[in-house]
Design a protein around this nucleic acid. Sequence first.
DNA 1: GCCGTTTTCGGCCCGACTGTTTTCAGTCG
Length: 575
Amino acid sequence: MKLDQKEVAALLKEMAVLLELQGENPFKVRAYENASRIIEGLSGDLEEMVKTGEIMKIKGIGSGIAEKIKTLMETGHMPEYEELKQITPPGLIEMLKIPGMGPKKIKAVWEKLGITTIGELEYACKENRLADLPGFGVRTQEKILQGIELLKKFKERHLINEARAEAELLYQALKDFPGVIRSQIAGSLRRWKETVKDIDIVASARDEDRMKIMDHFTSLPSVETVVAKGETKSSVVLKAGMNADLRIVSDEQFPYALHHFTGSKEHNIAMREHAIKLGLKMNEYGLFRGDENIPCKDEAEIFHQLGMDFIPPELRENMGEIEAALEHRLPNLVTMDDLRGVIHVHSNYSDGVNTIEDMARAARELGYEYLVLCDHSKSTYYANGLDEKRLMEQHAEIDRVNKLFDDFQVLKGTECDILPDGSLDYDNDTLALFDVVVISIHSRFNMTEEEATQRIIKAMENPYATILGHPTGRLLLARDGYPLDMHRILDAAADLGVAVEINAHPQRLDLDWRFGKYAKEKGVKLSIGPDAHRTEGLLDVVYGLHIARKGWQEKEDILNCLSADELRAFARRRR
DNA sequence: GCCGTTTTCGGCCCGACTGTTTTCAGTCG
């Protein structure tokens, strides 16, 4: 039975949830959560590592979990998991999503009242049956009902561009409000996670100003309901359907609070464990030796006090960044200023809104040196893909536009479809006309993992393929990608010298950043592509850039950092 | 369940807020 590491990771995560609902030792629960994350981010052959026992050398995986993974990979079963699954009604897992319902309360309503679904829970609240349980009361009951309402009304996660827009509104309303000294957006938004659950903002102020800032925050026009309101922390639900938290600390405490609320939780735990090793204590208010705070004026000083280089927020996922910071081998992450060209945009020759000239002017305006125009190929008839005849017209238009500038150029590219059998949508004579060929899948999503992986590898073997576009085809919060063995794809990309796209559209962000380190280890070049269908879409590059940073990418790893001529040469060298 | 520059046992990050309690448990991040 073949299980990939994603499936093993998912099973370990679920194991953690099941154990938690059984009231197991919280540290045991954490052990499973950690193991899940480690396996998910593992680069290397999991099956091999399990077989050789190599896996136990990784911090966080001991004999117990290693043994369970071994059994799972050999037999396809994990008896402990299956037993727990047997005795745990699935509705209990759903209940964890209700704000205010944790494992203890769920266990209580299950054991005392026999409640196993959210529907039953809602009914029981309305019948006033929860109020008499020990540790519960009328207020608890109301809160749970409210939580169920919120759950029904709002999605759990939000796209990064939508959350950033809301966060920016709150931040603008707060940053110059009287009494606010420093303020910043923190949380997963600052770490540039591809989707976010809520918005976190940290501010500093004098004690006597705090309450009026909280009053201001909780009564902003985008706020729908106030969930909690205290002197240091307030929590609201926005009309846009997401939660937002504001924390206020003193200005001396601001750097520590900013670090704390930037997270991730896993990163913070690991940081504190490291602090303890140095005889220090760390929390959101300071870095303490005994009772004495070690003063730090910004985040960088906190890291330096702990013997580390500054860790950029994107890397704070406890996926090796702390060790790297201690050994002074953090990557020098790629920046917006390093990007010289925009790769992968559409024009009105296929399904874009704007003309080639519009797109070129907009890209030039943003400071880029070149644009790689990649309209669709002939099979994507729904997107007005170009047949050979219209392609010639388009190339003539590109030549015309290129005469308009002496400091900017449009390169001839295509987003050429990968057909179901892995061949490309243009013949090689036609492909030879392009400077850059992006190849992507837009049809037949329902293949098996093996078929889809083969299909893509075969397409990459074509010597005219330059970049694999949006490799999984996922649409965040809407559609999973087709199943792929991404490690094999990246291995093949490395062998063949094909680059892989980080599609920067906020609904894609595909290649997933979790594969960034693996791609880097293998020497696969990545390309940041906004996939823009109108001039405004060029701004999406920023999302792709930060996803690249999250995947540990440096300037040398990114195709967009090449000059136009270097990019042409990159494409030519495998023809 | 994991881990060890005191340790193979006894710890395991830390604090705010809420609601149920008269000093604390549960949840959340």
